[in-house]
Design a protein around this nucleic acid. Structure first.
Lengths: 153, 153
DNA sequence: GGAATAGTTGACTAAATTGCTCGGGAATTT
DNA sequence: AAATTCCCGAGCAATTTAGTCAACTATTCC
């Protein structure tokens, strides 16, 4: 599993999609502007997201992308898996011979670590993130209210 | 937090160090051979690990590296933090203005996710990995015994 | 039908990162 | 003194990241 800015961009974009996505599709141009990601890069990312059936597209005016599944069914791990190349995993390329001390070490252990991280990211869905987003918004409102009061007082 | 092959190499090397490290320092040449990582690359990685005080070095014949702390005090996150560049975190570069909807999203949420992953990796130490390694060895021995029995029978 | 909108695709590129070579040091042991 | 080993910097090929550009197709609206 690789965790790079690429995956971050993809998650951010998908989250934008999740937040804006009502009945109408969301345009890449809009995401590009709001999230400050270049349009062409988004095109590349969404090409993959579409091939992995995480989003669906509508062409023409009023078109754009929308999520192919409910928020709770799209995990962060799904998104990262979609935009990152297949990852050749370990250097021994799939030989599961645990006999050799080294293989066992580099292979098995790191894979276990990997699996655990995936496990976690598999359980963080867009729904989770949207919920947190709402929480955050709520907090901002509260802060503003508090600020107003302190200014008045 | 970035999770790349670089960090993987570093963790693998440190694990090798942990497994071999008795009273005598372990040479990079040895790690290089056992783990199939180029010596020069190891030198670069260990230069950072040393600067982060995760390892200590002894020069001259019979020299090498040894862990600067007990196994349980070196987490995978420590290692990755050491070899990966300071990571400029988010694009907004540290402005904590949650006011703006986008910043809040890309910044706060991803940072939370990050924190969670770190949280996990902070709790996986070399001691944890060594324990797993021993488990694995045990398994191999059992398998061999089973194989022997089935061959004899 | 024609214009505008948006996705689709492919080629190409600049910059950064990865992983490595080489060459020379400096410290330490024998 | 010689061998060993860490130390360090320059440089380099391959890959990845992030992006530009250009041509194309499907769709909607007029």
């Amino acid at each position: 599993m690789r965790l790079t800015t690429k995956g971050r961009f993809a998650v951010t974009a998908m989250l934008d999609l999740a937040l804006r996505g009502g009945k109408n599709p969301v345009t890449l141009a809009g995401i590009s502007e709001r999230q400050d990601i270049s349009l062409s890069y988004l095109e590349q990312l969404f090409s993959r997201l579409r091939r992995h059936e995480l989003v669906e597209s509508v062409r023409g005016p009023g078109g754009g992308y929308y999520l192919a599944r409910p928020l709770g069914d799209v995990s962060v791990a799904d998104i990262i898996r979609a935009v990152d190349e297949p990852i050749d995993s370990t250097q021994c390329g799939g030989k599961e011979n645990c006999q050799d001390e080294h293989r066992c070490m580099t292979h098995d252990l790191w894979m276990g670590l990997n699996a655990h991280i995936y496990d976690y990211l598999d359980n963080v869905t867009l729904a989770t993130l949207v919920a947190k987003q709402d929480e955050c918004k709520e907090k901002v409102l509260q802060d503003r209210r508090a600020l107003k009061i302190s200014l008045v007082a």
